[in-house]
Design a protein around this nucleic acid. Structure first.
Length: 187
DNA sequence: ACTGGCTGTTGAC
DNA sequence: GTCAACAGCCAGT
């Protein structure tokens, strides 16, 4: 079993997301991953976007939806280096990856709880809601997953229905969800 | 097998 | 400000 990828979450500050606030400098680009081409972006606070989207035309709008005040610089070589760091086998002494995410307090709690789920293991929406301190809010957890714009790093693919069904995956459909789960269980 | 209440958050009116 | 919609779940029919 592959080691758990160490990840540290950071909440975005208000000035990062205000349209008229001081612009956040974001470096973004496209790179190949084991699951297809992805769009990845990093600011001074950490990785702030990862999606399996390869439409170059939509790059700016995809990132500015989350980070309206951001100044975006395109750099595919930078993106390729980031992706390399994420998908290689982590060694024990590497520094944790820093993530910068933007969401409500409940969503932040859900994401942090999800990061404690070990690689290769699955959890239901309902159980994750309980871990986040809101039993019964399984449906709201689904909304939190849909709001996660750092696919794979916040492992929303490990969350499935309590019935055993895969459920939905906005990061590229149920097929990609299945592929990532299978990859994690054999690496 | 179907219905409805519950959940947090958003977007349309 | 109210209301329905959503990556779910459980109890009651």
């Amino acid at each position: 079993m592959r080691n758990q990828l160490p990840v540290r979450l950071k909440k975005a500050s208000v000035s990062d997301i205000r349209p008229n606030g001081k612009g956040l400098l974001v470096t973004a680009g496209f790179a190949k991953s084991p699951f297809g081409t992805c769009l990845i972006a990093e600011s001074s606070d950490g990785i702030c976007h990862l999606s399996f989207n390869n439409e170059r035309k939509k790059m700016v709008s995809a990132i500015q939806k989350d980070w309206p005040g951001a100044c975006i610089k395109q750099d595919d070589r930078y993106a390729a280096n980031l992706v390399k760091r994420i998908f290689k086998k982590p060694n024990a002494k590497q520094a944790p990856l820093r993530l910068s995410v933007n969401g409500t307090p409940f969503q932040f709690k859900v994401w942090q709880s999800l990061l404690k789920v070990p690689q290769g293991k699955l959890i239901s929406y309902g159980k994750l809601a309980r871990l986040a301190g809101k039993p019964g809010a399984a449906r709201a957890v689904g909304t939190a997953m849909a709001q996660n714009h750092v696919a794979f790093l916040i492992p929303c693919h490990r969350v499935i229905k309590s019935s055993g069904d895969l459920g939905h995956y906005s990061g590229g459909g149920p097929g990609r969800k299945k592929a990532i789960i299978a990859w994690e269980q054999t690496n």
